[in-house]
Design a binder for these strands. Structure first.
Length: 535
DNA sequence: ATTGGGGTTGGAAAA
DNA sequence: ATTTTCCAACCCCAA
């Protein structure tokens, strides 16, 4: 019988929460704790929508705990200092928390573990943010992160399917002490970081928290079930729904409102109910990508930067503050790009085709600006961005790492790709109202509209809407040549690193130079920017 | 595998 | 009403 604490960081949920169960086991008194330390839950770089989402997650946890007679204890400050006080005050005997695999959290967690050891407090860390323990994947692979995505898949196949979700917590036999003097007011963004409250406090349709996450999950499962029954197949030239209400679970996976293991097993279950075929890997491909980027960041604290990052190509990107600013603000003069950036800033979530478009435009496609800038922008605004997933996706997109480093694909045309993804132009008109009367014909390249058309549409290009900041055709051609040069330099020093076991896989691989292969990898899948992957 | 590019063609919108 | 322009819809090919 003991006083125990569960420390929430990721994993803002009650279901499938093994470390929460560990905290409740044989406990006499139980305290659920969340600590704002200026970094937790991605609050170091955090736009308004992310703050709002996090607050809703915490509010939801507090509401659920109220129903079982408790409250969520919320603190602000350094975890070590706070726990040091709490251990004394509450007489804590056990501290439980979910594993945060990313390197950025290790100093914090190591310090707290040491504090526990110094104070004779048992600490328990459990895996539930990822499908597998990244450390198991690395061990299974012989001590280093898998060199390629294919190998990653192979290794995880070797580990077997991920653990099934654990039972819901039972609070009936523990005491949930209520505070006498402590205030449970969640610190609001306006007070904590007023400079981060942007003017764009728009309603975005996203509501944080486990309750909403599970509702969305259930409705999403029904959609998938229907698709399976109808004979699920991968869409070849599919039309993304850029205008519908948010359906992605990615923000809920990011904050742990919905368990990734629940997601995995439910999809499998639903598919198996409908079909006797072996479930396609594609069903959970995005979850595996998520897993891959988390795992690959383990032990690489330079994962979010180009310099000194063993897996990232050094590419001589331009430094162009003006271009960067225009990209960030959605003022590039390419309506498709600008609409995506406006939606990102206003709503905090954009579809993966939008992510493809703007990330390619910033980096290897048009502006030739480092992916690190895009990483920072996405990490600030995207509800589903997490440090390693965001950085991994940006390296991928910009052809800075993985097999992309040696096989740079064609870039997206900001006009043509937009036309295909948003054929009615409704998406652009929603996020760029200045273009609402521009005829569809010129909507994706309004600078080509004759003066009379511009006047009639009440939008003079160069005045009401910017002229394009670069000539796509010229810029992308030059950038492609520069990328080819980088690649040809690399190929000269490329040496076979390891032979693929399966002959059929050879096609998918490009040999990596040693310095890349050491911590690097290649992969063949595409479509990695889906919200689930959480770029 | 998925894009852009080149070619062609038919048709719609602009002039 | 006629001409011009340009785009969607094909195809195939290259990367």
């Amino acid at each position: 019988m003991a006083v125990t604490v569960h420390w929430f960081r990721h994993g803002l949920r009650l279901h499938d929460n093994p470390s929460l169960l560990a905290a409740l086991e044989d406990a006499e008194e139980f305290y659920p704790v969340f600590i704002f330390d200026g970094e937790v839950a991605g609050t170091k770089i955090c736009g308004y929508n992310r703050w709002k989402f996090l607050h809703e997650c915490l509010q939801d946890l507090d509401n659920q705990l109220k129903e079982v007679g408790g409250r969520l204890y919320v603190f602000q400050g350094d975890p070590c200092e706070i726990f040091s006080t709490l251990f004394q005050e509450w007489g804590v005997k056990r501290l439980c928390f979910e594993q945060d695999p990313e390197p950025i959290w290790q100093p914090r967690d190591n310090a707290v573990k040491k504090l526990c050891e110094d104070n004779d407090v048992e600490w328990i860390e459990r895996i539930s943010h990822t499908l597998w323990n990244p450390k198991d994947v690395i061990n299974q692979n012989g001590g280093s992160p898998p060199v390629t995505y294919m190998i990653f898949r192979h290794v995880t196949d070797g580990l077997g399917p991920p653990d099934k979700p654990v039972n819901d917590p039972d609070f009936s036999s523990v005491k949930l002490p209520l505070p006498e003097k402590f205030q449970f007011e969640l610190p609001c963004l306006e007070k904590l970081a007023p400079e981060r409250v942007c003017e764009e406090k728009k309603i975005n349709g996203w509501i944080g928290g486990e309750k909403r996450g599970l509702e969305l999950f259930e409705s999403r499962i029904k959609v998938e079930q229907k698709a399976f029954k109808a004979g699920y197949c991968l869409p070849n030239q599919y039309q993304p729904d850029l205008l519908g209400p948010p359906m992605s679970l990615s923000p809920y996976l990011r904050f742990g409102c919905v368990s990734v293991r629940k997601f995995y097993w439910k999809i499998m279950e639903v598919f198996n109910e409908v079909s006797t075929e072996e479930p396609s890997y594609q069903l959970i491909a995005q979850l595996i990508w998520r897993e891959y980027f988390y795992t690959m960041s383990v032990g690489n604290d330079k994962y979010d930067q180009m310099k000194e990052n063993p897996i990232c190509l050094n590419i001589p990107w331009y430094e162009n503050e003006t271009h960067l600013k225009k990209w960030q603000e959605g003022e590039t003069g390419y309506p498709w790009i600008d609409a995506c950036m406006k939606q990102l800033k206003i709503e905090g979530w954009i579809h993966h085709v939008s992510r493809h478009a703007v990330s390619c435009f910033l980096t290897r496609g048009d502006l030739w600006i480092s992916w690190e800038e895009g990483f920072k922008m996405f990490l600030e605004h995207l509800l589903d961005a997490d440090w390693s997933i965001c950085a991994g996706n940006w390296m991928w997109i910009s052809s800075s790492a993985f097999e992309r480093a040696l096989q740079c694909p064609k870039c997206f045309c900001p006009v043509r790709y937009g036309r295909r993804m948003d054929p009615s132009g409704a998406y652009i008109r929603r996020y760029l109202p200045v273009l609402k009367d521009m005829p569809l014909r010129y909507l994706f390249e309004p600078w080509k509209a004759p003066k009379a058309v511009q006047e009639k549409a009440n939008c003079i290009v160069g005045k009401d809407y910017p002229l394009p900041i670069v000539n796509h055709k010229e810029a992308s051609k030059k950038n492609y040549e520069m990328m080819e040069e980088v690649v040809s330099c690399l190929k000269k020093c490329a040496i076979p690193h390891c032979a693929p076991s399966d002959e059929s896989e050879v096609r998918s691989f490009v040999w990596l130079p040693d310095h890349l292969a050491a911590g690097g990898r290649g992969c063949t899948a595409n479509d990695i920017c889906d919200g689930i992957a959480g770029m």
